[in-house]
Design a protein around this nucleic acid. Structure first.
Lengths: 269, 269
DNA sequence: AACCACTGGTTCAAATAATGAACCGATCAA
DNA sequence: TTGATCGGTTCATTATTTGAACCAGTGGTT
């Protein structure tokens, strides 16, 4: 590990829950020498990446990040960071993938990617995802702002015979998403499509959008679902990271539980 | 210069106007070896501080900054409280406003706001303010830690024909800031810009940064200066308050004296 | 007041990791 | 083909990083 890498690693110990760290504490966290850590901190301080609280002498993240984050946002808008994640997800699952962003109370399509693995594949060309009828919409209802539920129930448009039609069944569906961490729809938007989606979060820790896999319904087996779940988790983490956030622990927990359950049901794995 | 410092320095070459840089270009900018620079970039990439554009292979700032900027703002919420103050100040004066923070011995740009009142306005895109050549820098020299003076005199870079060039004239300028409470520069950083700045303090009672108005030089009349002074006082009080501090009585006193003098000179107001 | 346990910070010989000229393979233009 | 880029890699040389031991200061206990 290079000296630069060690220096940079120190920054990763700062978080919202541990915003200020003293020299000795940081040595323990990083399992490194005091002299070394001190020199590393001085290099970081010079660059504006950390500063010392003049009262407590503890170190905290510096103001340089505000500037650099601004440049990053100007350099890489959200769509661009979604594309590689969607590509990877499409390749891994062999199905079509979508990313969407919540803006106000509308779920906008951001980008999508078709897998080349199968000759039949899902091609959905929409720019707004209905909240009640898509896996992405359900994910966003489950983990997004609570006032969305009202808007969703006011717009229960029917797309197929499977589309959710009542407020009660929508609430059930959303509750199930909260418990599993995945939005899930079977033929509810298009007759031949079943989807699985995961929420994506941004730097404010709020829900920012969703990422989904749209499967040809006849291919949507428990095995495929399991595979989609695994890769959706990775994809959501990646995209959340690309948008500057971290997946909330609570969501990670329900994902872990869901995967465990599906393991239990499937004695092979 | 430590290897870590060299690595970190690479990041400073990225900006809104130069968001992506290739390996060779970065070597030229940093005046360093290609192998070395490449290794440094790899360390940065591993930490998420840079990433490569998969198409062009050029490097750009990474997503880690979004997270770390978020943590920084949660730790020391400065930018958030500065924005409305800058906005108000820009509106009141009709000129561009800046806020900066002192970290270590560097003055970082925090945020800025352009007035919509005039069609010609000052647009300054820098991330570090030179201590000797900007109104903000002079304010910080005047009311900040005394060891800054050494650093400033060691870095008397010339920007325009008006830029302060000698230790003696810098000391004079700083003394004048102490007496008036305002940093003041006439065309000293950019040829067409004259600025006025006031110090901002934090909860420890120490200087934390500065707030400034950058005027198109040809508009910088005594009337406008007077107006800027009045509103800068209010803005500095607001921002200091937003950062949990209070403006020291001694600074308030020199402000009051300055306003009184300019009243005496200007019988109209 | 003496003692202890803890800070943050510094020193210097020993050891390790950074360095850069030269090199490779690709790409592009003339 | 040639030449001038580009990004990336190699390895002997060299300079930098390293950490045990050391200060100095602080707050709590005996």
């Amino acid at each position: 590990m290079s000296s630069a890498a060690k220096t940079l690693q120190l920054l990763s110990f700062f978080s919202a829950t541990r915003p200020e760290i003293g020299l000795s504490a940081l040595c323990r966290l990083a399992k490194r020498d005091k002299a070394t850590t001190h020199r590393h901190l001085q290099a970081l301080e010079e660059a504006g990446f950390v500063e010392q609280n003049p009262l407590t002498r503890q170190y905290r993240l510096g103001p340089a990040f505000l500037q650099l984050a601004q440049v990053r946002e100007q350099t890489v808008p959200r769509k661009e960071s979604a594309v590689p994640v969607l590509k990877a997800l499409a390749e891994e699952t062999g199905e079509t993938t979508h990313a969407s962003v919540l803006s106000g109370s509308t779920v906008f399509a951001l980008a999508s990617c078709e897998s080349t693995q199968h000759s039949t594949r899902v091609v959905i060309d929409l720019d707004k995802f209905p909240l009640h009828a898509t896996a992405s919409g359900l994910s966003i209802l489950a983990f997004g702002p609570s006032d969305l539920m009202e808007i969703a129930t006011a717009n229960l448009k029917t797309f197929t015979s499977y589309t959710i039609k009542s407020k009660a069944s929508l609430e059930d569906a959303v509750q199930s998403v909260r418990e599993t961490g995945f939005g899930r729809t079977i033929r509810s938007f298009e007759d031949e499509v079943s989807s699985l989606a995961a929420p994506v979060f941004d730097k404010t820790g709020n829900l920012a959008g969703a990422i989904s896999v749209a499967c040809v319904a006849t291919r949507f087996s428990p095995d495929l679902e399991r595979k989609c779940q695994e890769h959706l988790i990775a994809a959501s983490r990646d995209l959340t990271r690309g948008w500057g956030g971290t997946v909330p622990d609570q969501v990670e927990a329900v994902w872990a539980a869901t995967l465990k359950n599906s393991n239990a049901l499937d004695p092979i794995s």
